[in-house]
């Protein structure tokens, strides 16, 4: 048994090593290809005569294109490109304008989004319409499109003006603020000591066992708690220090639900730029806790600090 395990380990190690070396090779190759000398050396003689040289120059060309593209993507954040719709019946001979939006948080480019536009009226070359996109539905794409890319109706009596640049800017702002809010909630959870690695693993295990999550209309009647140990735990909870046991945002991170160990439940409303506008906190008996409610308002990054810092309760 031990030998097979050892062999399996060896194989896994070798596999990891291979993939590591392969990525190292790819890295080295691109470094080599990006060197400016290569291109000049290749162009010293005619490329056509030598097939190897021809291939090499193609690879170099691809690398330099990639470098140019990435520079634009990284510096501009919103870039446009052209693609062709393969559909033979496509509007405007399949000419599509793509808008690519980069979201960078914490020194990393974490996500890219695309909006693809076509021109529904071939005679009117400046009017665009969104035909495909990869924007999640929690981003208000439709209102933004209504505002910045209005369509002229069939009668064409009212001339409308589109502003693609402003549309891109506004959309990027929405996307980035969404990601920033999610990142802020993540750090809030870390601050409250909720998202350490082991608990996540436990969660995974639990997930496999019970796919059914929190039941939202299961209100346990408190008088039915007959078990003594539970009663004790309850007393302990009420007298002991108050900890935050859960911080849970909704999908668009406009609402965050905070649960305390003593049965307090709070819901705070967050504006798009990360300001907590208002909050409602209720204790286990359903009474509002206005001292905590007042503390919720402010920047969302400081929510946990505000709620736990002055724990005079």
């Amino acid at each position: 048994m031990a030998t097979t395990e050892a062999l399996d380990n060896d194989i896994a190690n070798l596999r990891a090593r291979i993939s590591h070396l392969q990525s190292h090779r790819a890295n080295l190759a691109s470094v080599l290809l990006s060197s400016p000398h290569i291109a000049t050396r290749l162009q010293q003689r005619s490329v056509q005569s030598d097939p190897l040289r021809q291939k090499a120059s193609g690879v170099v060309k691809r690398q330099s294109n990639r470098i140019t593209e990435n520079t634009y993507h990284a510096c501009a954040g919103v870039t446009a490109y052209k693609v062709k719709d393969p559909d033979p019946n496509a509007i405007d001979h399949g000419n599509i304008l793509g808008v690519r939006i980069e979201v960078a948080i914490g020194g990393k480019y974490i996500e890219t989004y695309n909006v693809l536009l076509n021109r529904p009226h071939p005679e009117d070359t400046a009017t665009f319409r969104i035909c495909h996109h990869t924007i999640p539905p929690c981003i208000p794409l439709q209102p933004l499109a209504n505002r910045f890319l209005p369509m002229t109706g069939n009668d064409a009596t009212t001339m409308t003006e589109q502003n693609l640049e402003k549309f891109g800017k506004a959309l990027r702002k929405e996307l980035v603020s969404w990601h920033l809010r999610s990142a802020a909630v993540k750090s809030l959870r870390a601050e409250a000591g909720l998202s350490d690695k082991s608990s996540e693993e436990e969660l995974e295990q639990e997930k496999e066992q019970y796919p059914v999550g929190r039941i939202l209309n299961a209100f346990v009647s408190s008088d039915a708690e007959d078990s003594e140990e539970e009663e004790e735990a309850r007393r302990k909870r009420q007298s002991g220090p108050m900890n935050i046991t859960e911080i849970e945002p909704d999908h668009s991170v406009r609402e965050i639900r905070v649960t305390w160990s003593n049965g307090h439940i709070g819901i705070v409303r967050v504006s798009k730029d990360g300001q907590v506008e208002k909050g409602v906190v209720r204790d286990a008996a359903g009474q509002r806790v206005s001292s905590l409610e007042r503390k919720t308002v402010g920047r969302m990054e400081g929510l946990v600090h505000r709620l736990t810092g002055g724990s005079a309760l």
Binding site: S23, A26, S30, N70, A74, R100, T112
Partner: peptide, 16 residues
């Protein structure tokens, strides 16, 4: 991500 490479990904050689 087959169309969009990361903006800081400069590797053009095919990956493992």
């Amino acid at each position: 991500h087959s169309f969009n490479q990361n903006a800081l990904d400069f590797v053009t050689a095919p990956r493992a």
